[in-house]
Design a binder for these strands. Structure first.
Lengths: 235, 235
DNA sequence: TAATTCTTAATTGGATCCAATATTATGCTT
DNA sequence: AAGCATAATATTGGATCCAATTAAGAATTA
């Protein structure tokens, strides 16, 4: 099968995200095209796309290099995610979700409950949880009926996972910090509750906190309890 | 001079934004390359870039077409701008601006005061004001020290100005609604005040309101007065 | 030995060519 | 006349070619 353009982008991206191409590595069109067994044209296009995604930087007349993403930058990207998904959650609450979306979110919450019910999380549980997590967020964004949110996020899609500063994102660490998943998942429940009850401002607030949780900067358990209490008393 | 790649993108973009290429117009590589006097290669790259910007959509095997941007979409884009610039203003307040940035903002505020002091705004005043406005916002974003904000906004850079639904953006209307500029400029003053005094939450809130003002959805004058009063009493 | 100049080579951007594919138009058949 | 099949055409994606630019290295000179 002939390698198509999209494949070139995705395989290069994978190589970067999995650390096969380390930060600072230099990439030129001809060597890369030979390595991938395609011509220069699709490689050129892929380089531009990856530059757009923030994974490569152009060195004029000296090719591209894999960007080293600083910790600050990743934090910044997550903060951006936070306000954008906060907006999404608020608008989803204000505009209301479809039956399908509501059901899908409920199912994902159950799935998360089930995954987290086991005594000790395996790496495969982690994988499953992360997929569930992504779908949950995607549905909230979709339910916002605001395509500009998705567009704005696309730029930050892969940046936080760049290999350079893996930060709290590598699996070993994630497993160690498994308890935080319970907190994050509880936030999912609360976001869901807020959205289906039309509590836009709260949905936004929780979602913004939730973004920070991904970074490992979570609030104290005390705050978590408070959140639960407040949630029981309202509507 | 040979037309370079960037020129192809910018001239196509200009044609779209100025309405020379209307929404729904179909574009193919070969006719476009002939029209612009370049080969297909830069046109192909330009099409992809403009698709990324949301100005073109791809019709598989039938070329591209100029996207018709709905009013809802523009509103969505402005809302996204609002939360992102709100984040920028908050972080600028929290992290503090450099001397240069602070001086630059102050100068822009004065420039705006001067422009708005005249009895009746001309079109050239409008032009000047908008340039000032853009620089003001750019500096706030820069002062956030969060490059992810700029990256996320780049996607929405031109969308609100797409010719299809000019909305409140055409000059005639803008001139008619000139009073709103005074309100918007007052918000600039308040944002500046909040940032230099480290009032992050307020800076964020005003900036988010401010985005709506661009759309013509401003709060009542009563609210504007209140804002002023609060601003006098604090710090 | 260090600096400067000149040459070489690497690299990209644009143009053109070729192949694959899907749409559209045309003509034939019922 | 309408529908279907087939042919022609439009269109893109990938490969290769050519030219322009500049970075890097070598050689020469002070």
């Amino acid at each position: 099968m002939q390698k198509t353009q999209l494949n070139v982008v995705t395989s290069l991206r994978q190589m970067i995200l999995e650390g096969e191409l380390k930060a600072g590595a230099r990439l030129a069109e001809i060597p890369t095209s030979e390595k991938l067994g395609v011509s220069r044209t699709p490689v050129r296009i892929a380089f531009r796309a990856l530059e757009q995604e923030g994974l490569l930087t152009k060195l004029p007349r000296r090719g591209y290099e894999v960007r080293s993403v600083s910790t600050e930058e990743i934090i910044g990207a997550v903060e951006v995610r936070g306000v954008l998904e906060g907006l999404a959650a608020r608008q989803a609450a204000e505009r209301g979700m479809s039956e399908d979306q509501q059901k899908a979110l409920a199912a994902l919450l159950e799935e998360g409950d089930r995954i987290l019910a086991v005594d000790e999380l395996t790496e495969s549980d982690l994988e499953q949880y992360q997929q569930m997590n992504k779908r949950f967020h995607d549905i909230v964004i979709e339910a916002s009926h605001n395509p500009a949110i998705h567009a704005a996020l696309s730029r930050n899609e892969h940046l936080p996972f760049a290999s350079a500063s893996a930060l709290a994102f590598d699996k070993a660490h994630m497993l160690r910090e498994a308890k935080r998943f319970e907190f994050a998942h509880m936030q999912h429940h609360h976001v869901y509750h807020a959205i289906v009850n039309g509590l836009g401002t709260r949905a936004e607030g929780i979602m913004r906190e939730h973004a920070n949780a991904t970074l490992g900067y979570i609030n104290s358990p005390r705050n978590a309890d408070q959140l639960t209490v407040i949630s029981e008393h309202d509507t």
